[in-house]
Write a protein that binds this DNA or RNA. Structure first.
Length: 608
RNA sequence: GGGGGCGUAGCUCAAUUGGUUAGAGUACCGGACUGUCGAUCCGGUGGUUGCGGGUUCGAAUCCCGUCGCCCUCGCCA
């Protein structure tokens, strides 16, 4: 035993071998039943409390925290070394599990009934830098860029560890499920061909063929169709996708999808298989039984009732069309939009009469921010409407409005009218979600799923004066709508479906067109010439002509899935190494400049 | 590309709206302490107020430009 503690400068040459850190337990597992056991633990210093001749260290690993006690009266040299331990130092300790005395337990820790009386301390590595933040809950307040730059610290936090582990568990559940259903896992290339339309591609220069570029896939869409044509029958893959578009709160330039495709499909089979996967994920990750079958709603119905194709059905506040009542009123702002072919819709906020004029003005401003011209509101008082614009509505109309919304005394009815139906829906969808959030109408810890089916196939782009595909140009119209392709494309519904969870699109897919004649008519409608189509998707069209089975599938956003499972606010919290809004990685400093030699090999000259 | 918010000590924030030497909490460093667990007590280090320019006797504060982060619209078949 040394006569005095080694000075810190020599600690780095303390000799130890791997036997020092062979752990008998992890830091979060010891309980009162383990008292008396001889154990070895290893991990990081979470915190230290120095009482002179008695030092307490909270030792942390990915499983939790155990308090270790170093007593000078047990071993003075060991205690003196423990005295030098600081946050995030790495050490191993051997000792005996002891029950804490009465009143000394820590009810905040699962291990709080015990502690480890240290007998041997090995300092494995000193944390030699001053850390910008400590990996505990206080880091929630730290700027995100800093958390990303020091991601190895951020990921040490229990919350981030949990997110990583939930992600791994969900991915494992998905693999197990699809494998057990007989799906074949196939990898598709990352270095592939740029396909025009859609999102902007990330491109990779070719060294062997100067002037040519690969594109990173926006999704494996075309490859999975080719796998079906190749006779694979049922395919899945958990795969990175790349889109070079501006980022958002829920968007990263590279993201992960579960990609699924089956041959000889029915919509029922795609949907029920996906439900099976969802059930398996929620069961294995959260031990929650998701009831199936999941309710199926048509696109038209959800747009009517919720004003959104990704409705949050955890709460009510459903929309009602009141165009007829508004049109019969003397309120010109509403009368005129109905006359112009527009629509007036309402929703009723139970107990909403307590909203102040100021709050209502703020709501109006928000709705205007969403594109609306204004927001009508009526308090329900004594069976009548109380509002600056109530005078334009006769007694009968007031009663009709109250009945239409099933409103009760003290409720508040909102109304939005616009010549554009989509503006009305957009405003009320915003209002509905906003009210639910601010009024606490969203139940905690609840997952509500629904399918949205029968999407329109095509949408008329008024600016470009042409029809565009709502999903993608390979989406099959419903069988009964094929004849409408020539007549009114706006009425054609697609064999396309979205899975929505808590108001977020979780997955989406379609049955593809496998008939050459139908595909040609769709290309024609979208204004592609045969040459266009051939140039853009030639390899797929060639495959489709070679005996393509009917096929269809779905893709699920894995990052969004993990956000939902973990209750995360940001997609960046469920990705180990995310990028900022300007697509920069603060940890690695990517993207960065490359050597002149690399550019020369690629035949690239930089412009300005 | 457009709109908005933010940028002050390692971190989170303040600075009475242009006025003395830019403060607090926390972290960090040193000392004391044998039952703490947000330890406590005593002492201490720590600032290019993002960067550049301007106005002014005087700028964290006002103006112009610029950079970065976040939110949002466009965009994301």
């Amino acid at each position: 035993m040394a006569e005095q503690a080694q000075p810190p400068s020599t600690l780095s040459v303390q000799s130890y071998d791997e036997s020092a850190w062979q752990r008998t337990h992890r830091c979060g597992v010891l309980r009162i039943g383990d008292v008396g056991a001889q154990v070895t633990l290893a991990g990081w210093v979470q915190s230290y409390r120095d009482h002179g001749n008695l030092v307490f260290i909270d030792l942390r690993d990915h499983t939790g925290i155990t308090q270790v006690v170093f007593d000078a009266s047990d071993d003075k040299a060991m205690h003196d070394l423990a005295d030098t331990l600081r946050s995030e130092d790495v050490f191993a300790v051997s000792g005996r599990v002891a029950a804490r005395g009465p009143g000394l337990e820590n009810p905040k820790l699962p291990t709080g009934q015990i502690e480890v009386r240290a007998q041997k301390l090995t300092l494995l590595n000193k944390c030699q830098v001053s850390l910008p933040f400590l990996p505990d809950a206080s880091a929630d307040a730290v700027g995100e860029e800093l958390r990303m730059k020091y991601r190895y610290l951020d990921l040490r936090r229990p919350k981030m560890q949990r997110n990583l582990r939930v992600r791994a568990a969900a991915v494992r559940a998905i693999r197990d499920f699809y494998a057990s259903e007989g799906f074949l896992e196939v990898e598709t290339p990352f270095l592939t061909k740029s396909t025009p339309e859609g999102a902007r591609d990330f491109i990779v220069p070719s060294r062997l063929q100067h002037g040519s570029f690969y594109a990173l896939p926006q999704s494996p869409q075309l490859f999975k169709q080719i796998l079906m044509i190749a006779g694979c029958d049922a395919y899945f893959q958990i795969v990175k996708c790349f889109r070079d578009e501006d980022l958002r709160a829920n968007r990263q330039p590279e993201f992960t999808q579960l990609d699924v495709e089956i041959a000889f499909p029915s919509i029922d089979r795609v949907l029920s298989t996906t439900e099976g996967a969802v059930k398996a994920i929620w069961k294995s990750v959260l031990d929650i039984d998701v009831p199936t079958p999941i309710e199926r709603l048509t696109y038209d119905e959800v747009m009517d009732r919720y004003g959104s194709d990704a409705p949050d059905i955890r709460f009510g506040l459903e929309l009602r069309n009141v165009s007829d009542i508004a049109s019969a009123s003397e309120f010109n702002a509403f009368k005129s939009v109905v006359a112009a072919g527009g629509v007036v819709k309402s929703l009723c906020l139970p107990g909403g009469s307590d909203l102040t004029r100021k709050q209502l003005d703020e709501l109006t401003a928000s709705v205007q921010g969403a594109g609306g011209k204004g927001l009508g509101w009526f308090r329900v008082r004594g069976g009548k409407l109380d509002s600056p614009i109530a005078k334009f509505f006769g007694e009968t109309l007031q009663t009709q409005l109250i009945e239409r919304l099933a409103a009760n005394e003290g409720d508040l009815i909102f109304a939005v009218g616009d010549a554009s139906k989509s503006v009305v829906n957009k405003c009320l969808d915003f209002l509905r979600r906003h009210l639910a959030r601010t009024r606490g109408l969203i139940p905690e810890g609840v997952f509500k799923f629904c399918w949205v089916v029968d999407f329109p196939s095509f949408e008329y782009d008024a600016e470009e004066k042409r029809w565009v595909a709502c999903h993608h140009p390979f989406t099959s119209p419903r069988d009964q709508d094929i004849e409408k392709l020539a007549g009114d494309p706006g009425l054609v519904k697609a064999k396309a479906y979205d899975l929505v969870c808590n108001g977020q699109e979780l997955a989406g897919g379609s049955i593809r067109i496998h008939r050459q004649d139908v595909q040609n008519r769709v290309f024609e409608l979208l204004g592609f010439t045969a040459e266009d189509a051939e140039r853009r998707f030639g390899f797929l069209l060639g495959a489709l002509r070679a005996g393509a089975p009917p096929h269809g599938g779905i893709a699920m956003g894995i990052d969004r899935l993990i956000m939902i499972l973990t209750g995360s606010e940001s997609i960046r919290d469920v990705i180990a190494f995310p990028k900022t809004q300007s697509a920069v990685c603060p940890l690695t400093d990517a993207p960065s400049q490359v050597d002149e030699r690399q550019l020369r090999e690629l035949g690239i000259d930089l412009r300005d």
